[in-house]
Amino acid sequence: MSNAVTLRLRTSLERRIEADCITPDRFATASAAEIAHLAMWDGRRQVMLGDVFDVDGERSTSVRMTGDLAHVDAIGAGMTAGELVIDGPVGRYVGTRMAGGVLRVLGNAAYGAGLEMANGLLDITGDAGDRLGAARLGASKGMTGGEIIVRGNAGAESGTGMRRGTIVITGTAGPRAGTSMIAGNVIVFGDADDAPGQFNKRGSIVVFGHVTVPPNYRYVCTYRPPHLAVTLVYLRARRDVAVNAAWNAGLFRRHSGDMAEVGRGEILEWRSEA
């Protein structure tokens, strides 16, 4: 048993590889040789993990990956425990369906990060691509739990169909954030201008920057939502997220919607200091 398993990309990749075998819980009881023999997919061709990565360490739930992994997809898919740190950019579907543990991406993440995630923490220090924490195309439910923190900008359709859980985007959210939310939270520190919250049932979209509230939302009041204070304290204290002190003192315009749906969702628009 070692303190951690380190996977180093041997050479830069030109073709995409699907690496859903890379999860800390799977490495917990595996020797270095067994880890090197885990199967990955290059299109229809199966490749061994050891063909692509140098493996250092064994039998640990702490995993670190280095190299430009922008062409490696589905890392941490379905992981249930442990810590996986990706030291650089990563490909599509990182942390998809993850149900526990901590997955840190020290760089950008491509399309579908945290897709249908059920629990755990996905922390991305760079930007995230489209459909962050969303449902698969055609599926009805996105994230059902856990937390996603993006310390940069996010692409289109973040949180589409999410049922529970929290997505925090410290930068700007792309078009159609929170589309078809069933519940849960999408918190955007920057702007969310392009049609957020369409078909939202009970979800909360919080925007501290500029937001263009769709016409199918109705302004209801300006107030201080108490749960947001708890959320901001939590993010600052437990997730090391930089929170503007003025946000706690400020007021929020509450817009209820989507009124074409059940109308129990909300867009909370931070307005000013009290």
């Binding site: 529970r164 929290t166 939270n185 009041c221 107030y223 939502p225 108490p226 749960h227 708890v230 437990r238």
Partner: peptide, 17 residues
């Protein structure tokens, strides 16, 4: 709302919540 694994209830009242 679930925040940090703890569930909270937002009960609407005349003052707000």
């Amino acid at each position: 709302k679930v925040i940090g694994g703890r569930r909270f209830w937002r009960i609407p009242v005349m003052e707000g919540e």
